[in-house]
Computed example of a mutant assay.
Amino acid sequence: MKIVFLILITLSLHSSDILTSYRINGINTIEKQMDFELTKKEYWSAYIKDIDTTFGYMESYPNILTCNKENSTLNLYTKDSNNTYEFKNKYSAYTGKIKGDKLKEGDLKTPVGIYKITKKLSKENKLDSFYGPLAFVTSYPNTYDKYRGKNGHGIWIHGLPTEQERDEFTKGCIAIDNTNIECLNNIIDIENTLLIINSDEVKKGISKEILVSILSQLYSWRYSWLFDDIDGYLNFYSEGFIRFDGMKFERFKKYKTRVFKKIEKKTIIFNNINVIPYPNTKNIYQITFKELYKSDTFKFSGDKTLVIKLDKTNSMKILTEK
C-alpha cells in the first residue's frame, strides 16, 4: 500500500525532481514531500468526495445515536453496505427535568455535546433496578465540557425502573423503555458508537468544503510539528487556549518552544480521525484521532482530542486539547 501511494504521489509531481532528490538525499526528502501533500485541500477533496459526511467526517463510528431533547427522542443511524448512514430506529426518551445545557452537578439538565459510550452496566454489575436491565455510561464531561467549566458526572443512557415508580423526566440521563434498550444493546457495539445530544434536531449533511479545510489544516498543524516550525505550529492555537490540565497559552508556548529546540526526528501518525460540528455552537468542531508519536526522547500512542473554532476565513484555532 505504501508503494502504491508513493507511486501516486510521484505521478502527481515532477517525477524527475522527485527521483533526483531521492538519488541525492535518500527517502527522507520524499517523505517530507509526501507529508506536505497531505496538507493540501486537493488531496482531501478527492479523498472524501464519495464519503458520507451526514454527521461529519467519520473513520471510527459506524453507529451514531442522536438525541433531540426538545422532541424527547433518541435516534439510531448505522452504516450500511455502501458505508452510508441509514436511519434505523427512533426511541421515545426521557431527558432531564430542566431544559438547557448541563452546567453543574445536580442541575437536572441533560448535557448538549458529543460523547463516547465508555461502559455497559447490567445486573451482573449490580445495576440498581431503578435503571432497568441495562445502562450505557457516557464520557460526560468531555474535554470541551471541562474547558468551559462544566462539571458533574453519571450521565447514562438507561432503561426504566423494574420495581419502582418514576417521573416523566430524569436527573440528566437519557432513559428509554426496557425493550428498546435491550434491542439497542443487540444492535450496537459500544466501542464504535457515538452519542450526539442537541437541544433540538442534530445537524446533518455537513459541508464537505468545510471538512476538507479542517482536514488539510489538521495536517498542516502536523507538518509544522514534524518539522519543528514553532511559529507555524503555534499559529494554530487560540490565545485563549487552555489545555486539558489547565495549562494556558503563554505557558504552553514556552513549553513547546523548549521542546521544538531539540530538533529531533519525529514520527507522527494519525488514524481513526473524526471531525464533527459541536452541537449548539457556531463554527466549533471536535476532532478526535488515534495518535502515534515517537522521537528519540518520547513515545506516545493513544487518543487525542482537539476542539477548534473556525474564524471568518475558516482558519482553525485550537481552543483546547487532550
Rank of each mutant, 00 (worst) to 15 (best):
L8G: 07
I9S: 09
I30S: 01
E31Q: 10
T39Q: 04
K40G: 09
E42R: 15
Y47F: 14
Y47R: 13
D50H: 08
I51S: 05
F55P: 03
M58T: 06
E59I: 02
Y61D: 04
N63V: 03
L65W: 08
L76W: 05
N89K: 13
I98R: 09
K99G: 12
L103C: 10
G106T: 05
K120H: 09
E124G: 06
Y144G: 04
K146I: 11
R148V: 06
G149K: 01
W156G: 07
P161V: 03
R166I: 09
I176M: 03
D177I: 08
D177M: 07
T179P: 01
I181Q: 06
E182M: 13
L184R: 00
D189I: 08
I190Y: 13
N192C: 03
L194V: 05
L195S: 01
G205N: 12
Q217G: 01
W221F: 12
Y223I: 01
S224C: 15
L226C: 05
D229I: 10
I230H: 04
D231N: 15
N235H: 13
S238A: 10
F241N: 00
I242W: 03
F244M: 10
E250N: 11
R251G: 14
R251L: 14
K254D: 11
K256T: 07
R258V: 13
R258G: 08
I263L: 14
I263Q: 14
I268T: 03
N274E: 02
V275H: 00
I284G: 02
K290F: 11
L292H: 11
T297H: 10
G302E: 07
G302R: 09
K304E: 00
K312T: 12
K312M: 09
S315P: 00
